[in-house]
């Protein structure tokens, strides 16, 4: 069966029925095929919201395509090389030869890297994704804890959910100072553990959700520079919150803030006392 012998509209319908994983692999076959994929998948690519690297503690990210209507599809996995008997195929990805494992054992292809080549492989894959999906697509790196750094890659923003309970403050500071900009941070804070630098990328995250059961962490209230913030308090120092709202309303601070939500679980917000 020669695909190119099918009428163009039929070729496009075939491509439309393929997963992005297969289209991505198909794009390596020739410039002509790559061009066909790009031209036929324009509407589909417009539906992409972002592409996420969901990292585990081993720094082996799942790559997933998220659509605007909340659906997503898995693209591939990038993982350490293993001594398996499965044969790897090699692909020239953005000028670097990369091992890819495609087997019935796994649903998605696995891009394999040697430990010392981790960054180079991820960077090459990222460049090929940019080329394939276009430069305007947003990428997110969903970190698993703050012990491993988030790479600096084009169009990539960080995301992290963590608890600062018992956190090493220095490790946290290093994590945020070395990271790219953040899309969102979801932090369960226990006492004052936020970075001390008001210009830390922590406070510049586009969106922060913070759960603080016992004490306010007033630094978030003081230094936040993003667009959305959700405060969930157990007990609450109301003066901090009122000062936050007043500074926002008066235009003194929080110029980018578009959305604020405050939940207080155990205290009752006093009416007309301040």
């Amino acid at each position: 069966m020669k695909l190119s012998k099918l009428p163009l509209l039929v070729q496009e319908e075939v491509l439309h029925n393929m997963s992005y994983t297969n289209l991505f692999l198909l794009s390596f076959l020739s410039r002509k095929v790559k061009k066909l994929i790009k031209s036929s998948q324009m509407n589909r690519s417009k539906m992409i919201d972002y592409i996420e690297y969901e990292c585990d503690s081993q720094q082996e990210p799942f790559v997933q395509v998220f659509y605007k209507h909340d659906l997503y599809e898995e693209l591939m996995v990038i993982a350490k090389n293993k001594d398996t008997h499965n044969e790897y195929i090699q692909l020239n990805v953005s000028g670097k030869m990369i091992d890819i494992q495609i087997s019935d054992e796994y649903i998605k292809p696995i891009v394999r890297f040697q430990i010392d080549e981790n960054e180079a492989v991820i960077s090459s894959m990222h460049n090929s994704f940019l080329e394939f999906f276009g430069n305007s697509v947003e990428f997110r790196w969903k970190a698993c804890g703050y012990n491993n750094c988030i790479p600096h890659l084009q169009n990539l923003k960080g995301c992290i959910k963590f608890s600062s309970h018992g956190a090493n403050k220095e490790t946290l500071e290093n994590f945020f100072s070395s990271a790219p900009a953040f899309k969102w941070i979801d932090v369960s804070a226990d006492g004052k553990t936020e970075p001390s630098d008001p210009e830390s990328k922590f406070y510049q995250a586009e969106s922060i959700q913070t759960l603080q059961l016992r004490n306010n962490s007033p630094d978030i209230l003081s230094h936040f520079q993003g667009k959305q913030v959700v405060f969930k308090f157990g007990h609450c120092n109301f003066l901090d919150v009122i000062s936050f709202v007043n500074r926002w309303k008066s235009g003194e601070a929080y110029h980018k803030l578009e959305y604020l939500m405050i939940e207080v679980f155990w205290d009752v917000f006093p009416q007309n006392e301040y």
């Binding site: 190119s4 491509l15 393929m18 692999l25 198909l26 076959l29 020739s30 002509k32 495609i102």
Partner: peptide
Amino acid sequence: VAMMVKGKSPEEIREIWMIP
């Protein structure tokens, strides 16, 4: 037709669809 190449490597896809 799309299912024919599911889970295949690029070179296998080339062979199945005779892509030059």
